[in-house]
Design a protein around this nucleic acid. Structure first.
Lengths: 211, 211
DNA sequence: ACCTGAACACCGTTCAAGT
DNA sequence: ACCTGAACACCGTTCAAGT
């Protein structure tokens, strides 16, 4: 009978004793990201994901409205990761022109290393209505990093004094395009390595946005 | 009995009297393009496509290896259409800097007007092995148009003397990126119209590839 | 050659029921 | 609150059989 108080203390810390998981939502999200990364979006089925977590295939509906909502969470996670990579590159490059180039390379690298995840972020898998505010916030956060970098470069007189938003949209489109074509295998066939294309594109961007 | 010779003449022109269609392959392809354009890729099912053509849902397998092969044909058709639009824009613009800008606008317009079709061309729906040679040829044809335009501009001393292939890859990536972000609805949220973004991007490309 | 019809092994989603 | 199990309405694909 002296085990009971212990149980109660635990109960106080974690209000309820869940059936299988401390947090099925997180477990599902991680499993989805893992499956998508390793085997692609098509390989992600609610049935297999549930089975792998030792849970019924309908358990998911307690945590996500539907499959699209789960994919939306995966996309959100992707933008979070991307923002980290970009922020790191910008810092590592010393918040200057070098850092700007590093951001471009980091962006494409992220897409090439996680092609399926990247496609979920931009491939239209997340339907218009299911784009939850969290996803929008995270996507805007990553974009804002680019805007801030461009403003910083403008203050250093390294970038023309156009509307930073416009500049950022152009730069974003270019690296996004390189990334997309790269993971589609459309650049290798043209007899050039992806890295070289990225380097050249960053150079042309620099010329394009320069003073 | 005097109808028989007529039948035989017909048989000579068209060796066999098909069950339902003169060319089910074309009918299927058109139906697929139409469905994708109007209702998206997810709406395309072999069952409904067959039903709409008054044909069994397995009849397709006589003409395409599987659904991916059908999508590959849809993508091929897309590249054909895109090439036409680009060629027209380049000519209409007088094969010069104006034509080059017109190509960029035409490219993004095509994607925005046929978002689902465009996604089939670049969205990874066509698996690596299923990329039939016809698709590759057609895609390269559209890309070549861009290379040729850049070579022409180089001869007019309007574009820097870099490797035209590299230049074309950069330009392609940029317009592709703008197109992708546009059909993903990622540009409107940033408080700017797609047309303006395209115009600005074309301007920056021009600066980027200029002498 | 070209197409059918039944069958197979899958899906996502709903819902009454259990604890 | 959280999860289950059966059921529903779909898929793409295979294959023996028809004409």
């Amino acid at each position: 009978m002296h085990a009971e108080p212990r149980e109660k203390i635990r109960a106080a810390r974690k209000p309820r004793n869940r059936y299988h998981h401390g947090d099925l939502r997180h477990a599902l999200l991680n499993e989805a990201v893992r499956t998508i990364r390793e085997d692609g979006v098509d390989a992600l089925t609610l049935r297999s994901a549930g089975a792998r977590l030792g849970v019924s295939r309908t358990a998911m509906y307690r945590h996500f409205a539907d499959k699209s909502a789960l994919l939306s969470a995966v996309a959100t996670e992707g933008f979070r990761l991307l923002r980290e990579k970009l922020s790191e590159a910008w810092s590592r490059g010393g918040h200057g022109v070098k850092g700007f180039a590093a951001m471009g390379v980091a962006y494409v690298d992220f897409a090439v290393e996680n092609p399926s995840h990247y496609r979920v972020m931009f491939g239209g898998f997340v339907r218009g209505e299911c784009r939850d505010p969290e996803l929008l916030t995270e996507a805007k956060g990553a974009f804002q990093l680019l805007v801030d970098a461009l403003v910083s470069l403008q203050q250093q007189n390294r970038v023309r004094a156009d509307d930073p938003l416009r500049l950022a949209q152009f730069v974003w489109a270019t690296v996004h395009g390189v990334a997309m074509l790269a993971i589609d295998g459309q650049l290798q066939t043209q007899g050039a390595k992806v890295d070289d294309v990225v380097a050249y594109a960053v150079d042309r961007i620099r010329t394009g946005v320069g003073l």
